[in-house]
Simulated assay, not measured.
Amino acid sequence: MNIENKKALSTEETKILFSILKDRFEKNRNRHNDVEWPKVLAKLEMANEKLWSLNEMEKTGGEPDVIGYDKKTGEYIFYDCSAESPKGRRSACYDRQALESRKEHKPATSVMDMAATMGIEILNEVEYRDLQQYGNFDTKTSSWLKTPPEIRKLGGAIFGDWRYNHVFIYHNGADSYYAARGFRGSLRV
């Protein structure tokens, strides 16, 4: 099997994913009031590799859903909308540099490597705050966020959560990792 085939879903996997996405779309209309499912489905049907990425988001517990439409690019924007940071993406440090700097007790991977493998982007602070308008996410967990280069250069990385009816953005050493911290991704289709 060549690499390109590994990033394609079977017909059955595609049907299952479409069913999950449509059901979530219908149950969460507040996330996309002006978006119609048939138009989203038409875009998805033409985007095999993006389907694979959405399926990876789903398999790792992200519960991806449409949160908007970019009129300039004609793309639908999906965010991970699971109540807590996706279970299948926790216990990872921020990036490859942080992973390699750990002398002992290294996690299996980094969130930046995982996101790249999945073909998605990590939410930044603005996107994370945007997500929070659709519900209270990360009330018991936290999520790594795309870190500005000036912070990363000094060894840090940022993460966010929702506590006391407020979004909090914090910092940590990029090489740290916790069982209750993962990351949320976005994908444009």
Rank of each mutant, 00 (worst) to 15 (best):
I3Y: 10
I3V: 15
K7T: 14
K7L: 10
E12H: 13
E12P: 01
T14K: 14
E26D: 14
E26C: 05
H32Y: 02
P38H: 08
K39R: 14
A42G: 10
M46C: 04
A47R: 10
E56S: 10
E56D: 04
G62H: 02
G62M: 05
G62F: 05
E63T: 09
D65P: 00
D65I: 04
V66N: 03
G68H: 04
Y69P: 04
K72E: 15
G74Y: 03
I77M: 03
I77F: 04
Y79L: 03
S85L: 08
K87M: 13
K87Y: 15
R90T: 03
A92T: 11
A92P: 01
Y94W: 08
R96N: 09
L99S: 06
S101M: 10
R102M: 12
E104F: 12
H105M: 14
A108C: 02
T109E: 12
V111Y: 06
T117Y: 14
T117D: 14
M118W: 08
I120D: 06
E125T: 00
E125V: 10
V126T: 15
V126S: 09
V126H: 12
E127N: 05
Y128F: 15
L131I: 06
L131G: 03
Q133E: 04
N136C: 02
D138C: 11
D138T: 05
S143H: 09
S143V: 07
W144S: 00
L145P: 04
I151G: 08
A157P: 02
F159A: 08
G160A: 07
D161P: 01
H166R: 13
V167P: 05
F168M: 12
F168S: 12
I169Q: 07
H171L: 10
G173K: 11
D175K: 01
Y177V: 03
Y177R: 03
F183V: 04
R184I: 03
S186H: 10
